[in-house]
């Protein structure tokens, strides 16, 4: 069983933001993930590695309730996902920001409206002076001030990733999950994105990044304490310390 937080291993952490207990996931008759146990403490920074097709994306989807485990228990903020309805999962998801490699947006809406989408769907004000100021600040933070009125298809890969990150954090979620966030962008842009993730972690956010990019992991380790998990043979393992 893997228990992770910045202070090191403990017993079962009652304040774990994400907790997996003997989780398995099967699809089409085959088991993709098996016997996964993990406790992610608040404020921790985790990387998830593994070969292509090992199930990293599936693992992340289990961590934000997009998929239901076929065995075991997934607890988000101490609530078992299995017993929740879709609306309850939707409310829980507002506490988890997600960034995908193929960031999906509403292509007919400008970047600012896409970034503000989590506020809109949760019924929060997006047109008041305060909300607009926050949005501008967020755009500046991800370096997209000049691209706020652009439509998503007009953005470059790096800009899309940063817009997706801005959208993921606008609700000030407790957890940020990123699935291969640097997969489609160059080294410089990936470093910029990492800087943003590190900043978020220093603000107390829990970060879990699935990536192939060992350089990204090394760069992160140089800035904040991180843990590296690896999916191998459908199981979750601690990766080697040489990373």
């Amino acid at each position: 069983m893997l228990r992770h937080n910045n202070a090191g291993n403990r017993g079962r952490d009652k304040t774990a933001v994400i907790e997996l207990e003997n989780v398995a996931y099967s699809y089409g008759g085959g088991e993709l993930l098996t016997d996964m146990t993990l406790s992610v403490a608040p404020g921790s920074f985790h990387f998830l590695t593994g070969p292509s097709g090992s199930g990293k994306t599936t693992f992340l989807k289990l961590c934000y309730g997009a998929l239901q485990a076929t065995a075991g228990h997934v607890r988000l903020f101490e609530r078992d996902v299995r017993g929740l309805g879709r609306d309850d999962v939707a409310i829980l998801r507002r506490k988890i920001g997600v960034v995908h490699q193929d960031c999906q947006f509403l292509d007919h809406l400008p970047v600012t409206e896409n970034i503000a989408l989590p506020l809109s769907v949760s019924g929060q004000d997006t047109s008041g002076a305060g909300a607009e100021a926050n949005l501008k600040e967020l755009l500046a933070w991800v370096g997209l001030t000049a691209r706020g009125d652009a439509l998503p298809p007009e953005l470059s890969g790096g800009e899309r990733q940063r817009a997706a990150l801005a959208r993921a954090v606008i609700m000030s979620p407790d957890v940020i999950l990123a699935d291969e966030p640097t997969g489609n962008i160059d080294w410089e842009m990936s470093q910029r994105l990492l800087t943003l993730l590190v900043e978020l972690n220093r603000m107390g956010k829990t970060i879990l990044v699935a990536t192939h990019d060992l350089g990204l992991i090394r760069a992160a380790k140089a800035q904040v304490p991180t843990r590296v998990l690896r999916i191998s043979n459908r199981r979750l393992q601690m990766a080697g310390a040489d990373l």
Partner: peptide, 16 residues
Amino acid sequence: AQVIAVLRLVGAKDTY
């Protein structure tokens, strides 16, 4: 379907 996927990703309820 993609719009629905995005809305769900950002926490939209089915009613919304």
